[in-house]
Design a protein around this nucleic acid. Sequence first.
DNA 1: ATTTAGTACGAACGATCGTGCTATTTGGCA
DNA 2: TGCCAAATAGCACGATCGTTCGTACTAAAT
Lengths: 183, 183
Amino acid sequence: MSRGGLSSVTIGRLAEATGLSKSGLFAHFQSREALEVALIEETARIARRHIVEPAMQVPEGLPRLMALVGRWFGWSARAGLCGGCPAAAAMFELDDMAGVVRDRLVALDDEWRELLRANVGRAMELGHLRGETDVEQIVWELWGIYLGHHSAMRFRRDRQADERAQTALIALLRRSGADPSHL
Amino acid sequence: MSRGGLSSVTIGRLAEATGLSKSGLFAHFQSREALEVALIEETARIARRHIVEPAMQVPEGLPRLMALVGRWFGWSARAGLCGGCPAAAAMFELDDMAGVVRDRLVALDDEWRELLRANVGRAMELGHLRGETDVEQIVWELWGIYLGHHSAMRFRRDRQADERAQTALIALLRRSGADPSHL
DNA sequence: ATTTAGTACGAACGATCGTGCTATTTGGCA
DNA sequence: TGCCAAATAGCACGATCGTTCGTACTAAAT
């Protein structure tokens, strides 16, 4: 899924990879659609373990936000996946397809954006960011930087992707009056 | 292709849509791979006509850069496509697949980035942007904003996507000392 | 002891995929 | 008008897709 997207995860291939028979494996999911939902949910689980949980150990405010974003960018490689972020790829794969799979992914995206929103907001409350900061705009631009980083890494094979993303991130937070001692 | 990605454009479906027979249509391309390359090239042609050519009528420097980017964001809808940007989707679809299709897309991406680079550079020469601007970084972040806008529009169905992108764009150019009269 | 539920299997289904071969039709030029 | 090459059609192929079916075997519940 990380390498070829949702549609590349075929019941036949998955059966071969697991050593199960096609029909035996199919019985566990009842439908291709349910398998795809399960795949998305598993992606979320892995992401939470690798990104959210460690970041929550860091002090609230800008430090935690930086930890969160730092672990977010490029997480799929650190999680041992051999391709890119399955969720990002799925967004482009499903953006025009209606159905429960897309719905589940939208819900997951909402959840993630809410997490970002909360942490940007907390940083503001703690005075790490300017008071009149547009939280939603920050979250919006963070997504842009993430997607840019993703395509730079995986499509363009840009060696400087990490630096570029970091530069963009710092500029974004500075613009919002970030306390430079936390960057 | 705009709606379902490269892999959704199947020879059978295309034959049915054009009224040709499968084999008759196939004879024109000799292979699925060649068809995909042709699709990517056609995408580039449409994009050039809708984005680049009109923008070249605008005075050099920041005005032309703004015209370019203004026509870039959300161009697929204005070009009459019923889905998102085929090139952006293809990047996420092919990011880990080797082959001539990917190669062609990379070349196209290089071409586009070179165009952006040239126009950011020209704006700098004309004093519309600060002299010590990191041109490559601007281009990099423009891509991020574009991808963010794309996913906001098509996946999240965000009504404010245009505003958000515009805000991010202006902030990026301001950071580079853009003459505010041109924004 | 008997029913039930869960798990897995092999075989087959109708579609559709890309791709060959072989005709047939077509359109421009001698 | 006749001819040749290009364009298109017809048909078939092996693969793979998601899905269904009937059937074992096992463990739990009755």
